[in-house]
């Protein structure tokens, strides 16, 4: 490891202690554990680069989570040079009870994965992180109208797909967001 790569004081401890939680957050934002961990690591690279400022004056975890959210949001907004649009949409599973004999967690993550990235990010911020539409708009750099439409489309898509997330919305209506305990 070169000199410039040596971890500054406190960084290793921060990563070690918060990495599992950040990976879980990334999993929610992407609907996939592997991509979620990838998102967390990419964000932590940025945190590393800004560590001196963050360690002394800032909140490194909040910064890392913000970077993750914005990266997940941008991933859903941009068409990248390396991407070629698929000629046909992926095939959907045939009818029947798709949820029988399957772990609820697996079904929930699959439902999240099925959402476009922008809708998934808004859904997680609104109903898991408990942010207001205004707070989400500020964090994502978009209008509250965009936040509303993404949330509305996400809920409609979940209802259409069925499963536990759909039932959570259908039976009780969208729950009032509750801020997570830090």
């Amino acid at each position: 490891m070169s000199g410039t790569d040596r971890t500054p004081p406190g960084f290793a401890e921060f990563v070690s202690s918060r990495y599992p939680a950040l990976t879980r957050y990334g999993t929610l934002l992407t609907g996939d554990r592997g991509h979620g961990e990838d998102l967390a690591q990419e964000a932590l690279v940025k945190t590393f680069r800004a560590w001196r400022r963050l360690h002394e004056q800032g909140d490194p975890e909040a910064y890392t989570r913000r970077v993750m959210v914005r990266a997940a949001w941008r991933a859903g907004k941009r068409l990248w040079r390396r991407e070629v649009p698929a000629a046909a949409p992926p095939e959907r599973a045939a009818g029947g009870d798709a949820y029988a004999d399957r772990d609820t967690a697996e079904v929930v993550l699959e439902a999240l994965r099925g959402l476009p990235a922008a809708q998934r990010v808004v859904l997680v911020l609104r109903y898991w992180a408990g942010l207001s539409e205004q707070e989400i708009a500020a964090q994502l750099g978009c209008s509250t109208g965009t936040v509303k439409s993404r949330a509305s489309r996400a809920i409609a898509a979940l209802r259409q797909a069925g499963g536990p997330l759909a039932e959570a919305f259908t039976e009780n209506g969208p729950h009032q967001p509750v801020r997570p305990v830090p």
């Binding site: 990976t23 967690a105 999240l112 898991w128």
Partner: peptide, 15 residues
């Protein structure tokens, strides 16, 4: 509640 569902969905996720 939705949040509990999401929490449960990632509770078993290990890096």
């Amino acid at each position: 509640p939705l949040r509990e569902l999401l929490d449960d969905a990632v509770a078993g996720v290990e890096p």
